[in-house]
């Protein structure tokens, strides 16, 4: 197993612990997205989620598509102590010159995060809170351009190919483009 695959495994294990606990109070709401928030290096991993009910409570009259997908408009991230510990593992990989140049290491970290969201155990952990939930999944950086934007856009395609709400997926594509 490669170091980045081990990162994915660690992150899946952390998400399986943290997501049910963090999302439990939202049972019965309409959860439309779960994402991993990160930054351009990447240095952080912060699980984020949002519901239609919370979206409706945000500034009426504002750009709905922007508010729907821009996690910095929602609130702080979900409480995720296990994921926070994995952030340190990612930081070690990002700084390890044995794993290639800086660009390759960043790319490996981005892909590991996407693969963790793509893992059936992660999806099952979300559904374990509310069996009706089938949120649009994605990776989103706080920095708008560059390699992290590419991986954000690729995450939309990898994680939602057969999502029943393709209108939402298309909306996210527009937001990320």
């Amino acid at each position: 197993m490669t170091p980045f695959a081990r990162l994915t495994e660690s992150l899946v294990a952390a998400l399986v612990v943290d997501l049910p606990a963090a999302l439990g109070p939202w049972r019965g709401s309409t959860l439309y997205t779960v994402c991993l928030g990160t930054d351009s290096d990447p240095m952080t991993i912060v699980p984020m989620a949002h519901t239609e009910e919370r979206l409706a409570a945000l500034a009426p009259g504002a750009d709905e598509e922007y508010l729907r997908w821009c996690w910095s408009e929602w609130a702080e991230g979900l409480a995720a102590p296990s994921v926070a510990a994995v952030t340190r593992q990612m930081e070690a990989l990002r700084r390890d010159p044995a794993l290639g140049d800086a660009r390759a290491r960043s790319g490996g970290c981005f892909r590991a995060m996407i693969d963790a969201l793509d893992d059936e155990r992660t999806r099952a952990a979300i559904r374990s809170v509310d069996a009706s939930w089938d949120p649009v999944l994605h990776l989103q950086s706080s920095d708008p351009g560059g390699l992290d934007a590419l991986h954000g856009r690729l995450s939309v395609e990898q994680l939602n190919p057969a999502h029943p709400r393709q209108d939402l997926v298309e909306s996210l594509r527009r937001f990320m483009a």
Binding site: R103, A104, G107, R111, G145, G146, L147, A149, L150, R153, L154, E157, Q158
Partner: peptide, 19 residues
Amino acid sequence: PDELVALDADDAAATAKLG
């Protein structure tokens, strides 16, 4: 630099698969 995305081989493979 890095105002545009220069794909590497892994990115190119992912783009071929997902885009």
